[in-house]
């Protein structure tokens, strides 16, 4: 571990992803060979954790399922403690293509920003979200634009690169169970800079999304509540 070169941690939150986790890890190894990988096994009851360990990857097991927000935050805490200068979230469901990862990190370094979001909607990239997701996204766009003063097209994308400063902020602030839209407002309120670049995403091939159409209204209300409260949440 050298201090001069940027130390990159790839945070892979995974819950019941035994069908995808090896593909995800292989994908990251191929396209981001220099980065350290940390799988956060979010209380899976299947083989997710042991499969990742067998693949010689660092795994942290949460004692029970806590949701993506707590899982990713555990990754930020790890990154902060072990002195990583940048982090990237790549979900364990094989939707985020690691080949786009170097580009996210490059933008993070070149533009000296704190958050780079891989966006599905910014340019035609072939990704087709469900209507519920598109509607929700439009709503978040509107709310975030209103509160944050910056238009972000793909608020729910978890495919992101974070600076050291963002790592430190997010390791100390818990951003609900649906952290993606909320973190934009939060980081912005702390003076962080954000850019969004278009990426191609895959459709999921196994496991299931945490957001089903039926639950999306519930999801939207909760996210709106949490976005509205972000400036008060400076506690852990």
């Amino acid at each position: 571990m050298m201090d001069s070169t940027p130390k990159t941690l790839i945070i892979v939150p995974a819950y019941q992803e035994e069908a995808n986790i090896l593909k995800v890890l292989e994908d990251i190894h191929r396209h981001l060979p220099l980065a350290d990988i940390l799988v956060i096994n979010d209380g899976s009851t299947d083989q997710t954790g042991s499969m990742a360990r067998d693949a010689a990857v660092k795994v942290i097991d949460l004692p029970f399922n806590m949701g993506i927000g707590a899982a990713v935050q555990t990754g930020f805490k790890y990154a902060r403690e072990y002195g990583y200068s940048e982090a990237m979230q790549i979900d364990g469901d094989y939707q985020h293509p690691a080949e786009e990862g170097p580009r996210l990190l490059q933008v993070l370094a070149e533009k000296k920003v704190d958050l780079v979001i891989g966006s599905r909607f910014i340019a035609p990239t072939g990704y087709q979200a469900t209507w519920a997701r598109r509607t929700g996204n439009r709503l978040f766009q509107w709310v975030n634009a209103l509160i944050v003063g910056q238009e972000v097209i793909d608020n729910t994308s978890g495919f992101r690169a974070y600076s050291r400063r963002a790592i430190e902020l997010l390791s100390q602030t818990y951003l609900g169970e649906y952290p993606e839209p909320e973190s934009i407002g939060y980081l912005k309120s702390r003076g962080c800079s954000i850019v969004e670049i278009p990426v191609k995403m895959r459709h999921r091939t196994g496991g299931r999304s945490s957001i089903t159409p039926l639950r999306s209204i519930y999801y939207m209300i909760r996210v709106l509540a949490s976005i509205l409260s972000f400036n008060k949440k400076s506690r852990r």
Binding site: K58, I60, L62, F64, M66, A70, T74, K77, Y174
Partner: peptide
């Protein structure tokens, strides 16, 4: 709930 989350994360990191 938030204290439980902190404890669980702490346990996971300490176990590691």
């Amino acid at each position: 709930k938030s204290k439980k989350r902190l404890l669980a994360q702490e346990i996971a990191l300490l176990r590691d």
